[in-house]
């Protein structure tokens, strides 16, 4: 069995804010592990504690309690750092530098020799689509271009683990598509990618595993597939000439019925659909459509957040 690339155990972080030193629990004891080669999604609404957790992993913030390990070592360990690339949320870089100079500077910190640095810089800038802007200072970059420069600097050390904090925010649809392709390609190169997002559709498509946190607490940790299985599976049936007694039965069993002229739309739980279709055919109804509907991450997440709020009340 391989050891995790990143392990977070019972992590807690408390901040004291303001003049009155009010205590704020940003992260309240979360645990998860990221295995090699995974694309791992870190989900949660704004203010859930995602960035605090990531900064703790990057040793920018020291935990109040709990443990973080990168490749089995503490996050401040130099060997571990050499194997990690990080893109901060809303990245800002030295705006007086050109992207090639930024990568040159960071490349030196990874101890990459001069010839290899030059080779990697050219390749990376092309890869993130900044080949045309090599000679422009970062001051003249748009937000999307800065995000690309940020991705390039995260990859300059050829890291085994790439940690991206909200990498897709602020990008236009084309930029998002390109960045998702880069993330997918990192997987084929055998890299582990850990990225946070509050945009659930991105994670649903890209990630093997996910962690969901809300208000600093862990809500889910497991495979994306398992998470989606916990969602409701429904079937939508559109038919004409449906007998009234059948509709009454559907409603009494918790199904939804909508009439549009002589057509009726029925939504029932997945497991009841087979029996209902048989009953409709037996009753002589004309079936127009039978469409399975699986609840996506978006709906599931909203439902989960709603539940946690109810529990809190």
């Amino acid at each position: 069995m391989t050891s995790p690339v990143l392990k977070v155990e019972e992590l807690k972080k408390t901040f004291k804010v303001g003049f009155a030193r009010k205590v704020v629990d940003a992260v309240r004891g979360i645990s998860f592990a990221v295995e090699p080669g995974e694309i791992f999604g870190f989900l949660g609404p704004n203010g859930a504690g995602k960035t605090t957790t990531i900064k703790t992993v990057m040793d920018l913030i020291r935990p109040t309690s709990g443990r973080v390990s990168l490749f089995g070592k503490p996050p401040g360990d130099m060997d571990a750092r050499l194997r990690v690339g990080y893109l901060p949320e809303q990245p800002y870089f030295y705006d007086y530098l050109k992207p090639s100079e930024l990568l040159e500077f960071f490349g030196k910190l990874y101890g990459i020799d001069s010839a290899e640095r030059k080779r990697r810089i050219d390749r990376l800038l092309d890869r993130v689509g900044l080949g045309h802007a090599k000679d422009r200072t970062l001051r003249r970059f748009s937000k999307g271009m800065l995000q690309r420069a940020g991705l390039a600097q995260a990859l300059i050390g050829n890291p085994d683990l790439v940690i991206l904090d909200e990498p897709l925010s602020g990008l236009d649809p084309i930029g998002r598509k390109e960045l998702k392709d880069v993330i997918s390609n990192l997987r084929t190169e055998g890299k582990t990618v850990f990225f946070s997002s509050h945009i659930l559709a991105d994670i649903e498509l890209l990630c093997d595993k996910i962690v969901i946190i809300d208000k600093g607490k862990l809500r889910f940790f497991g495979s994306t597939r398992d998470f989606l299985k916990t969602g409701r599976s429904e079937v939508e049936i559109v038919a004409a000439g449906v007998p009234e007694e059948l509709l009454a039965r559907v409603t009494s069993e918790g199904g939804a019925v909508d009439r549009f002229g002589n057509r009726t739309k029925i939504v029932v739980a997945g497991e009841r659909s087979h029996e209902l279709v048989k009953a409709l055919l037996a009753a002589g109804a004309d079936l127009d459509a039978v469409v399975p509907r699986t609840e996506g991450l978006e709906e599931l997440f909203v439902r989960m957040a709603g539940k946690s709020e109810e529990a809190a009340r």
Binding site: L60, M78, Y92, F93, Y94, F106, G111
Partner: peptide, 14 residues
């Protein structure tokens, strides 16, 4: 202030 420290201190740099 410019948040450049995040990307810098996350590099292999004590």
């Amino acid at each position: 202030e410019r948040k450049t420290i995040y990307s810098l201190l996350s590099k292999p740099l004590f």
